[in-house]
């Protein structure tokens, strides 16, 4: 007989007594059972999984142990979050004036130092962007524990006298800040009336067109939330139409240049119907006009 495997026997003793023991019937059956794929799968995968799951469930079935485990987990998490490399120590604000920075610090009350895991950057950003004076805000974490806030401020271009307050508006009509009196910002033009803030770009165009009247200009009044009145001193008003007010204003300016219209005793120039400018005379002028009319009437009668 020739063995298939096993190295060649070397010594005569081993050659003579090559062991070839028969497996016992039990060993044979167990070996066959072990080679059965299903059984093998159960022992090699099913049993460890069942043991681990069972052990885990048995351990967690006790409330006290579960709480201990949760407390321990929370403690570990806390300890990790409070490591020095995650601590934020101060907030740096870029692009904001001193008072806006003050407002931001007020709006975002954070007790430094704080772990960066406790900061909700998106929430902070939205809070800051929600401030009136802020056009855009960007919040990020910089190294060395600095919370970096970059802000673009809104620039006020007009003063709006509304029903409740006197406010500064930027070029889009967004409120920037409140002022106590119009006199605090004499450099900015004044607009008034309900809904004036929603038409700020148009107001700005009108202001630009009314540059020749700057010395006499007092402001713009929004009428009925749809059209503008240009108010000059001496209570003169130019009633502008709803559509294309700038052209109407330019026509008034042209009339003024030609006939010195505005210097006369006229209270109102009504351009609401652009094809038919209408004048309202002041009391003196009205009297004078009546006298002239009377005189011409008498003259005519005499002439006849």
């Amino acid at each position: 007989m020739r063995p298939l495997r096993a190295g060649r026997p070397t010594t005569p003793a081993r050659r003579r007594a090559r062991r070839d023991p028969a497996p016992s019937r039990l060993a044979y059956r167990l070996h066959r059972l072990w080679l059965t794929p299903l059984f093998r799968g159960i022992i090699r995968i099913g049993l460890p999984v069942a043991l681990i799951l069972g052990g885990g469930i048995a351990y967690l079935s006790d409330d006290a142990r579960r709480e201990d485990l949760q407390a321990w987990l929370a403690e570990q998490r806390r300890a990790f979050e409070e490591r020095p490399e995650f601590v934020v120590k101060l907030m740096a604000i870029d692009g904001a004036s001193a008072e806006l920075a003050e407002d931001i610090r007020e709006a975002v009350p954070i007790d430094f130092p704080v772990s960066q895991f406790d900061l909700d950057l998106e929430h902070i950003r939205r809070t800051i962007a929600g401030l009136d004076a802020v056009a855009e805000a960007e919040v990020s974490l910089r190294g060395q524990g600095v919370l970096q806030v970059s802000v673009r401020q809104r620039v006020p271009v007009v003063v709006w006298r509304g029903r409740r307050e006197i406010a500064l508006l930027d070029e889009t009509g967004h409120r920037v800040a409140a002022v106590i009196a119009r006199a605090m910002r004499p450099d900015l033009p004044l607009i008034a009336g309900d809904g004036a803030d929603r038409a700020v770009p148009e107001a700005l165009r009108l202001m630009a067109a009314a540059e020749p009247l700057k010395a006499r200009l007092r402001g713009l009044v929004r009428m009925g939330e749809r059209r503008w009145d240009l108010v000059l001193d001496r209570d003169q008003r130019i009633l502008l139409p709803e559509g294309d007010p700038v052209t109407a204003l330019e026509r008034v300016l042209a009339l003024d240049a030609a006939t010195d219209l505005l210097a006369r005793d006229i209270t109102t120039i009504d351009m609401r119907i652009p094809a038919r400018p209408t004048l309202r005379l002041g009391p003196g002028a009205r009297e004078a006009f009546r006298m002239i009319n009377l005189f011409e009437l008498e003259e005519g009668a005499v002439g006849q």
Partner: peptide, 16 residues
């Protein structure tokens, strides 16, 4: 003897 041969052949084949 048959058991011996079969068991070692099965072991080599790693299959029942």
């Amino acid at each position: 003897a048959i058991r011996t041969a079969l068991q070692s052949a099965q072991k080599m084949a790693n299959q029942r």
